[in-house]
Design a protein around this nucleic acid. Structure first.
Lengths: 209, 209
DNA sequence: CCGCATCCTCATGGATACTG
DNA sequence: CAGTATCCATGAGGATGCGG
């Protein structure tokens, strides 16, 4: 147990005893998109020390947040337990809370398209009246499609490039999250949708051929 | 800044850069109940090192989560900014997530009735569809059991006397009772017997023989 | 007394090298 | 590839001091 317990009979304190360690919630963030192997986790987390990753995975497994499974290729993969999956609510609330921090711009920070797959539902979800729409962001090596309908937002990751895909997203999200993530070479053409109404679909971008 | 930044352009990572430090969210928890002075914070947090408290308050103030105000008695009090207040959502989601941890029992952990004032709304409020669960809470001289099922939340209070008393009360009554603001006799006087009214007005008080 | 700042010790985090 | 082992830097914890 890397973190000293707060020793408080309080839900918040006990939650933080379990996932309040450095890197723990970021590991959960990665696994919210599906099981990953050790090396994939290390790569996606971007420079976590290997001993820390091993420690965190051990303690998260011991506390029932993460479990080891046998992946399709025979290797061991790490996955969230049902209880661990319930941390999505917490992660999304922190993503929403971070909006002022994200609007400050990317700066020197690293960026991985994967992270959008967690952030976008958190930022776009929760709206009441929402027209059916399709939102996508395409970045090197990854296409993200966010489909919005009456049942809520659904995110799908499409590894294969989809040339000529029409991308749409809420300006606030695209300008806040994707600023700096898309290069000029991707030639994103920004234009307002004809007859766009409501908070959605105000920006169109065209992916490179 | 005590915490090294993760250096990731991700909402979760930036939120954790801001409030992911040890003690930071517990400080927020205390201030969610209202402004406090430095000494009150230190006492309620139970044994935080004074230099750490000073450090955290400084960085939370620098990042716009907390602000210093002049209290009624002329002294300086610490209070949440509007943005800091928005962390209530995150805190409550962690409180809900901690249910299995809290069901494990109190053990040697410290307990302060204040903490219930944050936890109970998180557990009682919220969604409509909720799986059946039972939460036990121990207050000095009082045992509280909170049972959640499809019909809503039910609180079972187990004092020394009042055996078999069934009553209905608003959640605020239970909250006041649990937080020490109301004595059991006062709560019983305010509560309404049977004929529960309102969506959350099903509160049972029962004592062991 | 309250509100911190300083000092010291030790647990934890971070980077790199190394191994089955 | 999936971790361990090692070493150093840093932050936590506790005691104490000091000014208002």
């Amino acid at each position: 147990m890397p973190a000293r317990s707060y020793g408080q009979y309080c839900g918040l304190a006990r939650s933080l005893d379990t996932v309040g360690d450095r890197w723990s919630l970021l590991i959960v963030r990665e696994l919210l998109l599906g099981p990953l192997r050790y090396g994939e986790l290390a790569a996606s987390l971007g420079g976590i020390a290997t001993n820390l990753l091993a420690d965190r995975l051990r303690s998260l497994e011991a506390s029932g947040v993460v479990e080891r499974r046998l992946g399709a290729s025979g290797g061991v993969v790490y996955a969230l337990t049902p209880w661990g999956e319930e941390l999505r609510e917490t992660v999304e609330s922190l993503v929403r809370w971070s909006r002022p921090l994200m609007l400050a711009g990317r700066g020197e920070d690293a960026f991985r398209p994967r992270w959008l797959a967690v952030a976008l539902p958190a930022l776009l979800g929760g709206r009441t009246a929402r027209p059916a729409a399709e939102v996508g962001i395409e970045v090197p090596g990854l296409s993200l499609a966010l489909r919005l309908d009456e049942t809520g937002p659904h995110v799908t990751i499409e590894p294969e490039q989809r040339a000529g895909t029409v991308l749409a997203a809420e300006p606030e999200v695209v300008l806040g999250l994707a600023a700096g993530a898309l290069t000029l070479d991707q030639a994103l053409a920004v234009a307002h949708v004809d007859g766009a109404r409501g908070p959605l679909a105000a920006v169109f971008a065209r992916a490179p051929a």
